[in-house]
Each structure stands twice: as structure tokens, then as C-alpha cells.
């Protein structure tokens, strides 16, 4: 039979991964789309219509003259579902490329979050001390509150949130993951 190779893109089914496993995996996909009205609705509609998970989704224009946007999408599912998600994304007419960063090689993933923490006395001091350890910046301050800005992996932000909760966390905003492959090559 064919040699089944690791890694796959929307351009080829010949290097499909083995899809026997029932274990759910978390994958980060980079989807390059034409920046036209409705394209995000098409992507989201695909996920809701076919019952796939979206853990996070970020989108912004990355090439103004070429009208291109990059959607970074974190999803989970069995290998078969992940392959199906990529193939279905590839079918959408304004989708140019679909990359599975999780299987294509090492990547960096970052997320930005803003934390509003309210407190006085020792709690306030402790929040500031932990923010320093996590390299979070203070972007707003009153005598009884801070707004911290933190950038990191989703895990790091989860950990910071766990620490801030008993110290007076009142509001939290996260951007979702942006991701790039490591190394000099541009994969996307």
C-alpha cells in the first residue's frame, strides 16, 4: 500500500495520518482566507453545521493589499475528525491555505489577556508581586485595582488566572491563540 507519511495539508491526501485512533487531540490550524464579507461566517458555520469544536479562534487581516486574513483556530477531535475539518476548510472557496501547525513542526503559540484585579492591602501587593513573576504589565491602576496585560501560552494565562482569582479577579479578556511555526522557513 501507500506509505502513509506524517503531516498533511489541504493540498494533499497522500500524507494522511493514520486515523485509527479514538484519542482526542488538540490541533492549532492556520487558515489563510480572502478577506471578503462572510468568510468568517463560512468558517464558523462549517464548525457548527458539522458539529466540530472550536476552542479558540482569532482573525485579522495580514495583507492589506492582497486582501488576505489569517485565522488561527484551535480545535480538538479524533485524528479522523481533525483530518475532516482540514479537508472541509479546504473546500471553502475563499480559503486559500489550511495548515495544521500541530503536525507540521514546532510552533510558538501566544495569547494576550487582560486581567482586572480588585483588592486592597496584602492582596494588592501579592497580585503585583505575582504579576511581576509572570512578566505581566500593569496597564491601568487605581488605588483599589489593577489591569494587568499578560502574553503567553494559554497554559500560562490559565495559571495566572488561577492565582489571581483569590486575589480579587473581577474581569478577564483573552484574545485566543496566535501561532507561527518556529525556524526561518515561512510555512504558510
Amino acid at each position: 500500500m501507500l506509505n502513509i507519511k506524517e503531516g498533511s495539508t489541504s493540498h494533499s491526501a497522500y500524507n494522511l495520518r493514520s486515523t485509527f485512533s479514538d484519542v482526542e487531540e488538540r490541533h492549532t490550524l492556520a487558515v489563510i482566507v480572502e478577506n471578503e464579507p462572510g468568510v468568517l461566517a463560512r468558517v464558523i458555520g462549517l464548525f457548527s453545521g458539522r458539529g466540530y469544536n472550536i476552542e479558540s479562534l482569532t482573525v485579522a487581516e495580514i495583507d492589506h493589499t492582497g486582501h488576505m486574513s489569517r485565522i488561527t483556530l484551535v480545535t480538538s477531535g479524533t485524528p479522523q475528525v481533525i483530518e475532516q475539518i482540514k479537508a472541509q476548510l479546504g473546500r471553502i472557496v475563499p480559503v486559500h491555505e489550511v495548515h495544521d501547525l500541530t503536525v507540521e513542526g514546532p510552533t510558538v503559540e501566544r495569547e494576550l489577556a487582560l486581567f482586572k484585579v480588585r483588592g486592597e492591602g496584602e492582596h494588592r501587593v501579592e497580585a503585583l508581586r505575582l504579576a511581576d513573576i509572570f512578566r505581566a504589565n500593569v496597564v491601568d491602576s487605581t488605588l483599589e485595582s489593577f489591569v494587568f496585560e499578560i502574553t503567553g501560552t494559554p497554559d500560562k494565562i490559565d495559571a495566572f488566572a488561577d492565582l489571581m482569582r483569590p486575589l480579587g479577579l473581577t474581569e478577564l479578556a483573552r484574545t485566543g491563540v496566535a501561532a507561527l511555526s518556529r525556524g526561518p522557513e515561512a510555512r504558510v
Binding site: M1, L2, S10, A13, Q84, A87, G90, R91
Partner: peptide, 24 residues
């Protein structure tokens, strides 16, 4: 059986039945 599947739509392959010889 060994399954070969010829289809112009990559999403048809391995959607329902695992394919041994996929041909897009």
C-alpha cells in the same frame, strides 16, 4: 477489502470509510 477511493473532493476521502489508496 483494500479500499481505493477516487474522488475530486479531498473531504470525501476517509470521511466515512478508511481509505487505503486515496486518489484525489
Amino acid at each position: 477489502s483494500i479500499r481505493a477511493h477516487i474522488d475530486i473532493d479531498p473531504s470525501s476521502l476517509n470521511k466515512v470509510i478508511r481509505t487505503d489508496i486515496p486518489i484525489i
